[in-house]
Design a binder for these strands. Sequence first.
DNA 1: ACCCTGTAATAATTCGAATTAGCAGGTTGA
DNA 2: TCAACCTGCTAATTCGAATTATTACAGGGT
Lengths: 329, 329
Amino acid sequence: MAKRLTQQDIARMAGVSQATVSLVLNNRTDSGVRIAEDTRARVLEVIRRTGYVANPIARRLHDQRNRILGVFTYEAVFPSTRADFYQPFLEGIEEQAEAVGCDLLLFTSAKATGGKRRIFSDDSRIRLADGCVLLGRSIDRDDLAQLVAEAVPFVSIGRRDDAGGPVPHVGADYAAAVRDLVDRAVALGHREFAYVGAGTGAESSADRLRGFKEAVAAHGVHGVHVQFTGLGQLVEAGVTCVLAEEVSDGAALVLAARERGLSVPGDLSVLTLGAATRPAPDDVRLTGFHIPRREMGRRAVQALTEVLEHGTTPQELLACEFVEGTTLG
Amino acid sequence: MAKRLTQQDIARMAGVSQATVSLVLNNRTDSGVRIAEDTRARVLEVIRRTGYVANPIARRLHDQRNRILGVFTYEAVFPSTRADFYQPFLEGIEEQAEAVGCDLLLFTSAKATGGKRRIFSDDSRIRLADGCVLLGRSIDRDDLAQLVAEAVPFVSIGRRDDAGGPVPHVGADYAAAVRDLVDRAVALGHREFAYVGAGTGAESSADRLRGFKEAVAAHGVHGVHVQFTGLGQLVEAGVTCVLAEEVSDGAALVLAARERGLSVPGDLSVLTLGAATRPAPDDVRLTGFHIPRREMGRRAVQALTEVLEHGTTPQELLACEFVEGTTLG
DNA sequence: ACCCTGTAATAATTCGAATTAGCAGGTTGA
DNA sequence: TCAACCTGCTAATTCGAATTATTACAGGGT
């Protein structure tokens, strides 16, 4: 196998020392460093001819910059079953990475222990990159705590609770988005609400449920939370407006209601809270909100840039836009 | 910010040398390396207590292997408009990269000159990776020649003509796939053929046309090649079977034929040659062949592994599977 | 001849871990 | 009793690039 070129090789070809090559390469003109014009030209010519690029590993060992940003996910990002979820985020990440002139490193090598990739293993590559974007519905608490503890520069996509310290993140403001939906429903006369979904576990679920509880409390209306339920129980309880965490659950409720001869939104309104993790029928145009995934990706890379430059701990929630469907009335 | 622990620190705490820590850490028991049980235990205890993890950067520097594979494309890969084309390839690439324990580096930093990224620019980052997979319908001849000349380890997805030397690639055997289609049509009685499409430029186009010409010659039937054409000219010329390089062209011909009251495949057979680079109507089930994109991605990474390990120049064409549609009779 | 000032380049060191050669100190065998 | 041989560990070197300290040399002034 052809060995990779080193600065030493370039130096030999140009008839100078390794140090000189480094100085020319980094265009150092500051404090007491001088290189004669023709020497500089000679070195640059060799570099151009050979296509030499500094070994990022060695470079990173010495100082802290690769212009490589890592992207960690617990699963493969490309398989089409996941594509719908990851793609908008990645689109934004790629766009912004291109804008700031960084390459993206996908940690596909993270060895799966029990099906799921791990951030930290005996051979963690996370530090190969300058910093890292974390992507996934939920992120292992221990991993998160270790990232914070070891001061790895990273930004999570999606809000995260503290893990031994504040976790830098760019998330969607689910609480506000859900409150907005309830506000609209109340304005249309609804008084009996139900929230269908986990409402716990991942922060994204908890935030939605919190928004729901805050809104019903603020309006003094009635709201119940059930993990999952049949349509019958809801109707019996007099519920007129259902908020479904999962798009597919919402769609299922609409179909079930129609089968029973109930009109949507005449007899029952159904709102979705935007998390399409499972495929859903597309003949139902649910009312809900849009999660700005692409923008979240973009902002996450921007935030990571700030972390790297200023050592800050940015936390930001982006607004979700209301989506007019046909299931609220 | 707390400085990261080093082996030197661990060594100090355990009262041994840095070398001993390294030996214990890597569990080296081979050839002449021996560590007393209690010393080993003492070191391991310190490691456990401190949660020390070896710095992967330093490790890689020594190992002369980054375990990073590059993926170069002339465009962004995530935007949904490109996704249909790139995704199956990337799916295979990611799968195999994960299998061999390598990370993937997307060259998003390649500065766009006139809309298209360039492989070689002032500060080409192509050598950041151990090797590189090239992805795209057509690849700049000069770029390719330079890659070969500079002995950059790479593999192209898609067959490529020599460029100052053989170009390592994993492609689809379009010539064979097209010959197969013609064979089937001839067996069904067709004698007058037309090939619609560029048939030149990218190797993938040229290969298809070559397969077409070889097949009609072998069967002694009549075949014409036109870059693009109206349905009228084809019918006038007595053509009974059309092979369209572009899926959308094929679909358009079918629709045009139906509008004229011609039956497909009763009066005219239409075959597609698999390259869906433009969106096509999906209410026409064209007969043609399947391009094994995912498998090509997988094999490309395998081939790259061979290049890196043995310095070979693998060239491979994968078979395309016949796809039964409703437009051949 | 000597000192001084620039200028242009290099030697040497650093980063953290892996590896190799080799050194003490003890045991065995002839 | 002395070479041969283990055992258990460490000093020194390596990887590639960046940086600091230093040297070599030329030319000008006194």
